[in-house]
């Protein structure tokens, strides 16, 4: 299936883009992350949470949505 992935904050430094669509046939969110880690090795060491269709989910969740957002914490103020 085609999944749109959104990257926030400093994650875009690892991916060099804010958003991309990829074809992915895996089952779990964690499998998608593994795929992204091999594409963007620097992403693996970043702290972030995952949202699937605008809901924050654990990484062992089944992929069911067409939009995944990777969200790091921000500290600035």
């Amino acid at each position: 299936m085609t999944i749109t992935i959104k990257y926030f904050g400093l994650l875009t430094e690892a991916t060099q883009c804010h958003e991309e669509s990829i074809n992915f046939s895996g089952v779990l969110v964690s499998e998608l992350l593994e795929n992204l880690f091999s594409k963007y090795p620097a992403l693996k060491h970043k702290n972030f949470q995952v949202a699937q269709n605008q809901v924050l989910v654990p990484v062992n969740t089944k992929l069911s949505g067409n939009e995944i957002a990777l969200l790091p914490p921000y500290a600035g103020g």
Binding site: K46, N47, L56, P72, P73, A75, G76
Partner: peptide, 20 residues
């Protein structure tokens, strides 16, 4: 509940380091 663990110190830069 959103971010259970503080990131390692220095892993996320602040405004004075990267600008805003």
């Amino acid at each position: 509940c959103l971010f259970p663990n503080p990131p390692q110190k220095g892993s996320v830069p602040n405004c004075s380091e990267i600008g805003v």
